[in-house]
Amino acid sequence: MDLYDNQKSTSKIKRDASVNDRIPDGLFLACPYCGVQMYNKQLGEHRVCAHCGYGFRLQARERVALLTQSFEEMDSDIEIVAPDFPGYADKLARAKSQTELGESVLTGIATIEDAKVALGIMDSYFMMGSLGSMTGEKITRLFEYATEKKLPVVLFTASGGARMQEGINSLMQMAKVSAAVAQHQEAGLLYLVVLTDPTTGGVTASFAMQGDITLAEPHALVGFAGARVIESTIHEKLPKDFQRVETLLENGFVDKIVPRPELGHVISQLVKLHYRAEA
């Protein structure tokens, strides 16, 4: 009979109520691309999925720390004046405190493995990297500065598209930046685009697709129209990976897909190939 008493006592073991307090959030993550669960630290400093190589979305300042040996920020004081659309000012303030950025792009002069470049990094954590008038202004100034100083431009794109709250001004940024790209091109300078997850809408339809060389991070989503819009227009389901860069590469719109840890090396190599005479 003792045997059964023993069994009775096991049912009295209680669930540890404080377990959620002791294990921090985000210890285990699911890869947004392949869905595999993994321990946070498996991602490593580059935040890359150990299973499929997808690069988790980075904030602009994190990327600067990973990619560059030195970085001197430009136009850090630029801010949008009078955002008069209802609720826009609050959204901006939240984005600013979250990302420590004044706008959805971080620009500056950087060295990437000895290569000096004008570097722009869009931040998808700042209002989904949307193209506001000051985003356009900062990128335009980056190109203008690079043209003047004869520097190559390296631009990491990440954007949900236009900034709705700014209306037509957001659309005009596509043209404004393009004009600066044209000027930079005519000076015979290199413009290198790195497509990162996600790059869509107005950014895809302008400076993301105007580079001399287009690199991309593995499995990044890149497209013009949103997948849901396409599906509701043509009334059919889109295949898996339809707007992933692997498909874009097949279709001829990307030069090379580079895993994040190798990006710095590839970029510096490409830059050096274009500026050999001066080096």
Binding site: G223, F224, V229, I230, I234
Partner: peptide, 24 residues
């Protein structure tokens, strides 16, 4: 611009980007 499947495959974004850039 048409948000279709073939349009994406053929590079709707690139087509618009280039139109803008060339116009400049």
């Amino acid at each position: 611009a048409f948000p279709g499947k073939t349009a994406e495959v053929q590079g709707q974004g690139e087509a618009i980007a280039k139109s803008i850039l060339e116009s400049m």
